[in-house]
Design a protein around this nucleic acid. Sequence first.
DNA 1: TTGAAAGCGTTACCAC
DNA 2: GTGGTAACGCTTTCAA
Lengths: 334, 334
Amino acid sequence: MVTIDDVAAHAGVGVGTVSRVLNKSPQVSDATRARVEAAMAALDYRPSPLARGLSRGRPHSIGAVVPFFTHASAVERLRGVVAGLGSAGYDLVLFDVESPEHRAEHLAALARRDRAAGLLVISLPPPPAELERLVAAGMPVVLVDARGEGVPTVVTDDVEGGRIATQHLLDLGHERIAFIGEPPDNPLGFTATAQRERGWREALAHAGIDVDAELVRYCEHDRLVARTLGAEMLAAQRRPTAVFASSDVQATGVLLAAADAGLPVPDDLSVIGFDDIEISEYAGLTTVRQPLFESGRLGAELLLAGIDGGDTAPATHELPLELIVRSTTAAPRG
Amino acid sequence: MVTIDDVAAHAGVGVGTVSRVLNKSPQVSDATRARVEAAMAALDYRPSPLARGLSRGRPHSIGAVVPFFTHASAVERLRGVVAGLGSAGYDLVLFDVESPEHRAEHLAALARRDRAAGLLVISLPPPPAELERLVAAGMPVVLVDARGEGVPTVVTDDVEGGRIATQHLLDLGHERIAFIGEPPDNPLGFTATAQRERGWREALAHAGIDVDAELVRYCEHDRLVARTLGAEMLAAQRRPTAVFASSDVQATGVLLAAADAGLPVPDDLSVIGFDDIEISEYAGLTTVRQPLFESGRLGAELLLAGIDGGDTAPATHELPLELIVRSTTAAPRG
DNA sequence: TTGAAAGCGTTACCAC
DNA sequence: GTGGTAACGCTTTCAA
């Protein structure tokens, strides 16, 4: 394994000079630089990121803490992150989180400057104490789709999103509008669903409609489970004429339930989702689009800026939501 | 930042002893071990993976080289990898590849023992020279969904898969069976499509059916592009009664085209795909299922075994394919 | 069973 | 401009 010493010897210079060439220091004569570069090429030299990281005190990698399994939308955000990191040359290290213990473990291990150059926490609001610890350790952190104190944050206004979805249904003339989302007291502390439910409530209240407790249902972020839940809801005596699902995954589950029940959509049932994931366009699902990819990209860019010591302002960047009307919503029949 | 020296001082022992405790060396007295562990706890000590890696000559991370953007199926494989890595404690580093230059760059950079403890190359057959270089550098490598010499490999029999799909259509009574896939001469050297096409040809030949050149079409791995291509095909004079698409992404594009053309599926057109990705169940798509998640998991397990110096045999593990009949295939009309 | 010290491959500081 | 050398935080001999 060829090291910097080999290069130095081959070029007839000191290791310091090779290091300078490596790091594009301007104070190297052109002649020397050329000689060193020739030596590097001849030896097919590749610097050791490990040694570099140790010496500099921080590695050239950024960590992404993300619920990689449970939320399909997280993958799209991650794609944005990859794009945002672009050619900066950072390694992207994936930390999958499925449980609070999982998260605590990762976050604790990452609270060292030499664990990563920076951290992207996606969709998982870190407990304030753990976030503080990271910041105290000098670790640049950016939150994507999660809120927290003292660090840059990329979010959307989920309450507004809930209002947008509900208002769309109200505008079409619906009055019995159900809500399906994840339980508000989930262990990892996802808050998006609760916010969207709040938007739903506010829009209904504003329209002078009382909330029927029968029309609020919670289930995990899973299509088949939502299908079952939707079936129950649609079998009820006074079934809703429209459903607002807090995620497209659940919305497509409801679509399946409607098909099972022989209820034509949108004639007998309107369905609106949230996210606009890949499957939504295919399914013709009306939804509230949130910029998943863009959130990841912006998060990565903010993090890079923070690492470079530039913009460390803990600003909250709010990305716009957009109503995408497709073919699963219409005026209620008769 | 608390280091091993701090722990040693706090416990009143040498750093060597702390290191031994850290690495669960049996030759430490219980009393000493307890004292050291108490010190570690008191100081909230976390070892530096960087320093550890440098000292040991290889980091505790595994790299995954994967087309993260272009193939949805790669994500499911990656999920399997995360699961397979389990609690072994390795960091998972993502290397996204979109072009041959991209790949060459990553592979060259990774050809150092101290870049990763092992490498998982997913869906991208590495050029023999680059693979050889990795092996020569002593880097444990496992190929998932790609073939290569001298390293463990996890694959499926794509020719057989093409046969299975085509035979299903033949059994239903179809004779004009089209094929849609990615161009066989793609720059990254994906071979799956070409193999599936071969299976298609073989099945047709075996059934005594001549291939109509009109019925073979290539387009990129994209739903909308496949939709356009499908539209062309369905508008032709003698249109096929069935389509075998080399991926579910493309199959759903054809489904869209059929809907656009007002052709009922499966009555006027049968469609079968390949992969069984998430959207397929939702779409009711008949397909040839390949174990995406399982391939990632097995790949990870093989790699871990290889890293531990155990099973380094370059065995080829062939995972089974399965025909999943849903509602997009039926006997041709009349 | 334990301590001391020599690496591991860089970077960065200090002389020249 | 350039060379020498002390870190960086850990593992791993080698003695004791």
